[in-house]
Write a protein that binds this DNA or RNA. Structure first.
Lengths: 293, 293
DNA sequence: CAATTCCTTTGACTAAAGTCAAAGAACTAT
DNA sequence: ATAGTTCTTTGACTTTAGTCAAAGGAATTG
């Protein structure tokens, strides 16, 4: 990793200070106008309903503390507590109509606050500001995503492949059959490698490397979760796969893809892959690429 | 004011939520590693020294609460309390060497945290991210600045003019004499107008409009505080002055400026002012502009 | 089916954050 | 010089946020 310049650190910290002081803190204040911030946040996080367990992990709260806050909200008539239909240990929390009304009001206030911030700007400046925020958020998210080598049989790996299969099943006119996915043994140990991208603990992307023949590898199942697209994550995955291939002494990488996946093809081209004739006959493939490492 | 689009509000709120959750909160956590957050923040805010009164307004704290926290920090040997030399009601707080050491450590941690955030990005992405943050901050600041009409004799107006005079005294090779400033009566009532730009309660810019002759006005002393430059504030001031001139039935605005103030000249040109021959003989003027409203 | 794990509740605390009002010393304006 | 204002301190509180451990019912696992 190249070292981080002091200028960048200063800019980030200055922005952070300014932003949290001016906006973050104020926003919190608006959120919990009449009730403790903890309760207001909890109500917000409950949204359309959730289990206590989910809330506990999402907000990082103590179980006892959460239990009491939920009871307090129930006492105020804002939420209803019930047992989970399938697992009686879990408790479900749902907003009542009064709770929903409060959420709507929270929302209205937050919107008014945001609108107030933008009001002093011209239309072009608003576009510039929101554009800059979107850019910053995209890059902050990308920076927080880690790409790790996992075993091909790991639950996260299989979960990614299932999600991948569901995604392309919906995209290919002919559908997609899961039997076409690589088996765990094809992407483990000497045979290959499997990478999973994690964002805040959840798998949001994957990519597999498989040995085709001596010196030649194949990339398969490069996939990014719908919510994590347009961040530049596919390129990160590709870079990890290529580095792994190089480390394994492979000098040529091949891959096949489907005509409908035009963005994928564009990305492969942009990353130095060139289209080649079919190197293998494959049900779902109609474009083939390779890159010399 | 044109209405704020819902898309912009959504983007801003989404960014706000993501940012405060991911960075703001964490940063606070790092700041107050071994001591209560309140004390850590107070120490940070004390910096190289401040009065309790200043801290109270800056942090918005209760006087009693602040007094106790300051005493707690003193008890830990981190700050020294003393009376203000000129005003014995005020108490000054200064960090001791131990306090400074703690600040340095706070700083180190915050830097490490910021560096960690940027680490996963390539050099170009870091430039893009910090650029976007700088843009966002600039526009958020601009949005928070209000331009108000004040009396030419108001203390804020005179304070701005004094700062303006000091600024250009340092820039003009021949210096600048304060007697050249407009008098309060020239920019009040029917004779003229005076605008002050405020950022979080402090005056950070000004501009004066003076009636020259029927239908013709003159702009004078358009100034922006050093800390508030490059935000686009001068244009805002100009817009306010022009709107006022229009409201007063003026159809032509004139102004003079000095050869050394090249950015000012560029701005006037960009805002539709055209250079004209001298309309008045004036010590500090060697360029003249006008604009038809 | 017994042991273990999971999830929530309850009791018993603590620390931090903040509020309010009274009082007193120091300055300011008239 | 006096009245009013400003700033800080102190006492006496309250609320919020959070921790820890014990306990019990419900699922899971060997």
């Amino acid at each position: 990793m190249n070292p981080v310049s002091a200028d960048h650190i200063t800019t980030l910290r200055r922005f952070n200070r300014y932003f949290t002081r001016r906006i973050g803190v104020l926003d919190d204040h608006y959120l919990g106008q009449d009730r403790p911030l903890g309760e207001a946040r909890l109500l917000f996080e409950i949204g359309d309903g959730a289990s206590l367990r989910e809330l506990r992990t999402r907000l990082g709260l103590d179980a006892g503390y959460l239990s009491r806050m939920a009871k307090a909200l129930e006492g105020q008539g804002l939420v209803r507590l019930s047992a989970h239909p399938a697992d009686n240990r879990l408790r479900m929390v749902e907003p009542t109509p009064a709770g929903r009304a409060e959420l709507t009001e929270q929302n209205r206030r937050a919107n008014a606050f945001a609108a107030g911030l933008l009001e002093g700007l011209t239309a072009e400046q608003r576009v510039e500001l929101t554009g800059a925020m979107a850019t910053a958020q995209r890059l902050l998210r990308l920076a927080a995503i880690t790409v790790t080598l996992v075993d091909g049989a790991a639950p996260d790996a299989r979960a990614c492949l299932d999600a991948y299969a569901a995604d392309i099943d919906a995209r290919f006119p002919e559908g997609f059959d899961k039997s076409d996915l690589v088996g765990p043994e094809e992407v483990s140990g000497a045979a290959g490698a499997f990478f999973v991208a994690y964002e805040e603990g959840r798998p949001v992307g994957c990519g597999a490397l498989r040995r085709l023949e001596p010196g030649v590898g194949e990339l398969r199942h490069v996939w990014v979760h719908r919510d994590a697209r347009r961040l530049g994550l596919a390129r990160r995955l590709l870079a990890a796969l290529e580095a792994e291939a190089t480390a394994r002494g492979l000098t040529l990488l091949r891959l096949d893809t489907h005509a409908t996946l035009t963005e994928a093809q564009a990305m492969y081209r942009a990353c130095g892959y060139t289209e080649i004739p079919a190197y293998v006959d494959h049900v779902y493939a109609d474009h083939w690429f390779e890159k010399r490492l």
